[in-house]
Design a protein around this nucleic acid. Structure first.
Length: 202
DNA sequence: GTTGCGATAGTCT
DNA sequence: GACTATCGCAACG
């Protein structure tokens, strides 16, 4: 266990979700939001998963953030009010999902990189025939959007209420948080902005 | 278990 | 016209 590790709580597979997180949760720095999203439940329709991996894209000075180039049609939601979905197409074929952080007018978002599937497993398996195990259903940014049925049509969706939202998770167990550099980027590759929940053994 | 590579389309230069 | 915040499969060990 490294010095960058700390303890927090992760829901059990038999979890049930609590109330949707309020907008104020997201109206903070992207780094704090990225860290605190671990262990929360991302719900869409009948499917849901517990967030186990995130990356912070603070905007501003961070050249790896899509918002670094400024306000464009694609990035406008990142500058808007927090708690909304920033969805984009990656490598021409994969959909990736972020949650907008920081107060309105300030850029910043959190990439959701992986989920632990907890509800609607049958639906997820049907959507992801390539997954060999249930662990692979949502173990990557492009996989989790497929498993939950998130598409570019969900761009800008408000995640603080409704059938597509992030919920407080109930019935939690302990996990550790590893902090590492972000994955798959070519700029600012050394910043420790990736957060991974590692379930405690036993 | 690991490494290497091609697919594919939106966005920006 | 270049460049991706990736994935899945094939070919190894």
């Amino acid at each position: 266990m490294s010095a960058a590790t700390r303890s927090a709580a992760l829901p059990r597979a038999s979890y049930h979700s609590g109330a949707a997180l309020p907008r104020g949760f997201y109206s903070r720095s992207a780094v704090v939001v990225a860290r605190e999203l671990l262990g929360k439940a991302l719900v869409k329709g009948k499917t849901a998963g517990v967030i186990i991996e995130t990356e912070a894209y603070p905007g501003g000075d961070d050249l790896a953030s899509h918002s670094a180039a400024g306000l464009t049609n694609r990035t406008r939601v990142i500058f808007g009010p927090p708690g909304h979905a920033y969805v984009y197409l990656s490598y021409g074929m994969h959909v990736c999902m972020n949650i907008v952080a920081e107060p309105e007018g300030t850029a910043g978002c959190v990439l959701i990189r992986a989920l632990e599937p907890v509800s609607g497993l049958e639906i997820m398996r049907a959507r992801r025939p390539a997954a060999r195990t249930d662990r692979d259903l949502a173990s990557g940014p492009g996989k989790l959007t497929q498993a939950l049925g998130i598409t570019l049509d969900d761009y800008g969706a408000d995640l603080t209420h409704g059938q597509f939202a992030v919920h407080e998770a109930v019935n939690a167990r302990q996990f550790d948080i590893d902090v590492t550099p972000r994955i798959g980027i070519s700029k600012c590759v050394d910043l420790p902005l990736r957060f991974v929940a590692r379930a405690a053994r036993i």
